[in-house]
Simulated scan of single mutants.
Amino acid sequence: MPRRGQCGLKPRLCSVQFLVHRLRGTMSGQLPPNIDLKEPRWDQSTFAGRASHFFTVTDPRNILLTDEQLENSRKIVHDYRQGIVPPGLTENELWRAKYIYDSAFHPDTGEKMILIGRMSAQVPMNMTITGCMMTFYRTTPAVLFWQWVNQSFNAVVNYTNRSGDAPLTVNELGTAYVSATTGAVATALGLNALTKHVSPLIGRFVPFAAVAAANCINIPLMRQRELKVGIPVTDESGNRLGESTNAAKQAITQVVVSRILMAAPGMAIPPFIMNTLEKKAFLKRFPWMSAPIQVGLVGFCLVFATPLCCALFPQKSSMSVTSLEAELQAKIQETHPELRRVYFNKGL
């Protein structure tokens, strides 16, 4: 006898019937039952699914939403989690409310986040700061000012998106801020001195080198507590197994790589374009247009680079049990001898 599903049909027919029922429900405005709003809408095991998720998370239009729209989205999400569904609410509207809510409210504390610290502010803020860093990079005062602005913005973002379980202390935040700013400025000034006698095009890549160096300093320092005490690791079902510093190292490495690659297109492509444009009559006649053109070019790159680089690694990352610390391995093998991989949140 062929195996049958709960709907009384063969498994494949049962799946088809479920999809048809779900589609009809969505088209008629009815919500499918048991939508898990704790998980993203798209399959996070694929790059396409992760990219779709982050294109929504980093949508710059969310910073234009009013307080009333934000509060309405929060109410829809909270009501749905309590089993209260407003009449006529569709699945698309529910997911839209979920992403608006996530874009503005801290996932652990529920507090409204600082506007410029939200993920939806990443593109407009970074395009402005990066564009200016790449335009005004020739003098020491300009390097000092824009690297300071950039690291101040990074500090706001890191503080805004801090973990609710292990918040940063003022000393940790200050140490990371001062160290990253010093590292970025030292890198920029040092490379500027080395590139004075080479092609101007090479000099345009100095800000990128400074940003890359700052990321390598800033992120590990901002997450130093995770490196000391570890981050929670779970089984596939989310059951907590312990804390691992090895998992923290992998998570932080993935975030550093993502952040550097995120900055790369916006800081590597425009220099070639600007180097060509500045030789043309238009910019020689209107040199003040260099900054807005550069900001626009950087912004165009970041609109795509930000979500695509966030999606490079799964948010719910994993590693082999054999890669964990010996003590944690022994604990897991004693309680879960069949377990081969553990999972953890890599952060952003």
Rank of each mutant, 00 (worst) to 15 (best):
L115I: 15
P271M: 04
T245L: 02
L23H: 09
R240P: 00
K10R: 13
N192Y: 03
R340P: 03
T187W: 03
V321R: 01
S15V: 14
L19M: 14
A247V: 04
N126D: 04
Q44F: 02
A263M: 06
L173V: 10
R3W: 11
T182D: 00
T140Y: 15
K98T: 15
S73L: 07
C132G: 05
G8W: 11
A268E: 10
N215V: 13
S120I: 08
I252T: 07
Q17H: 14
K196N: 05
P307T: 10
V156W: 06
T169F: 11
H21M: 06
G266L: 06
C309L: 07
T139I: 01
T140A: 09
F18H: 14
F105L: 09
M267K: 01
E327W: 04
D59G: 06
N171G: 02
V157E: 03
L64E: 08
L194G: 04
T169V: 01
L194T: 07
E236F: 08
F145A: 12
V211A: 14
I114P: 00
A247N: 01
Q254L: 08
T322S: 12
W42G: 01
V77H: 05
I76V: 13
V57G: 02
V57S: 06
N275L: 01
A176K: 00
P87W: 04
A51M: 07
S199P: 06
F54H: 02
Q250F: 06
I260G: 08
G131F: 07
A291I: 05
R12K: 15
P60S: 09
S317I: 00
D165E: 11
N72D: 08
R138N: 14
M133K: 02
R61D: 09
Y159I: 12
G8V: 13
T128R: 05
K284S: 09
H78P: 00
L94T: 02
T335N: 06
V206F: 06
H53W: 06
G164A: 05
S28R: 12
L261G: 10
D67Y: 04
S28Q: 13
